[in-house]
């Protein structure tokens, strides 16, 4: 996969949240959303180029062109429109990807280019003042789809463990968990009995299908939740998976956790394989 990082800032946390929620909205899976996006970390004013509160956002797509198109559309429709927002590059290495360069024309000739050092900024006049946007960001090769499944005896235990896992993963740099709350309940298998559908429910892990299809669920399992992780490199995804698994199994919900496993799609999803026992042994 290809990934980029942008830094979004706004006047206060409220409007920053609005901007971030908008730009990372409908970005859970590349299958239908064409991009996976999420907040990598929240930034203090001292960590942002314009001295305001900010957020580092990672976006992942299957190709460079797709990433560039999604970035342009999301910055143009979600950040340009969000009051007081500004957006900057969060990545200095890799191939350049247009950021402000692609949407400066909204200024209709009244946009201002300012180059400070090696960085170019666009100041696009909008109705609340100016939308400041860095000219380009960069993209690098990355890894998507790192995952593990939390198999629990009930939904409370599964949710509690998943929340602990996501909280632990949030502290790992260079990673995001793009699904709602970082958690997926509709884990999928490749293919379907219906033509044209490339993914369908992971029936082997559906408690209500036990008895109807061959199951992978242990006795007493009634809820399974999946954590999906995208990362900028192999070590980041591995670290996130390890932190997540350890957190899921060590909190107050650990008694209800029956098993931790992972979907590997027969090893066909990509070149990177994360073996859970190896990850935990490294801890």
């Amino acid at each position: 996969m290809k990934a980029t990082r942008i830094v979004v800032t706004a006047r206060n946390r409220v409007w920053l949240s609005h901007a971030v929620n908008s730009v990372t909205g409908f970005a859970t899976s590349v299958i239908a959303c064409k991009v996976e996006a999420g907040v990598e970390k929240w930034l203090t004013p001292s960590q942002t180029p314009d001295g305001r509160e900010g957020a580092a956002i990672l976006l992942f797509a299957m190709s460079g062109n797709q990433l560039e198109a999604q970035l342009r559309d999301r910055v143009g429709q979600c950040l340009l429109t969000s009051p007081t927002s500004a957006v900057f590059s969060g990545m200095d290495e890799g191939k350049a990807v247009a950021l402000g360069k692609a949407i400066r024309y909204f200024g209709d000739g009244y946009q201002i280019s300012k180059k400070l050092g090696n960085r170019r900024y666009w100041r696009i006049p909008v109705m609340d003042g100016e939308f400041v946007c860095e000219d380009v960001t960069h993209r690098i090769d990355s890894i998507g789809g790192g995952n593990f499944l939390i198999i629990a005896k009930d939904i409370d235990s599964a949710l509690g463990a998943a929340e602990s896992a996501v909280a632990a993963i949030d502290k790992v740099a260079n990673t995001i968990t793009p699904f709602p709350g970082g958690v997926v309940r509709s884990g999928s298998k490749v293919g379907s009995k219906y033509r044209g559908l490339i993914a369908s429910t992971n029936d082997a892990y559906c408690p209500t299908l036990r008895g109807l299809v061959p199951t992978n669920l242990p006795h007493g399992a009634n809820a399974v939740l999946e954590i999906v992780i995208d990362g900028l490199d192999e070590s980041a995804v591995g670290d996130a998976m390890r932190e997540g698994i350890v957190a899921a199994c060590s909190g107050k919900w650990s008694e209800g956790i029956l098993e931790i496993t992972a979907s590997n799609f027969g090893g066909k999803l990509g070149p990177y394989h994360f073996h859970l026992h190896s990850l935990i042994d490294c801890a």
Binding site: D50, T84, A86, L116, Y121, D128, G129, V132
Partner: peptide
């Protein structure tokens, strides 16, 4: 009012 660029310039 609301001059974001000014902050960036000062930081530079």
């Amino acid at each position: 009012e609301n001059n974001t660029y000014w902050n960036i310039f000062c930081s530079y």
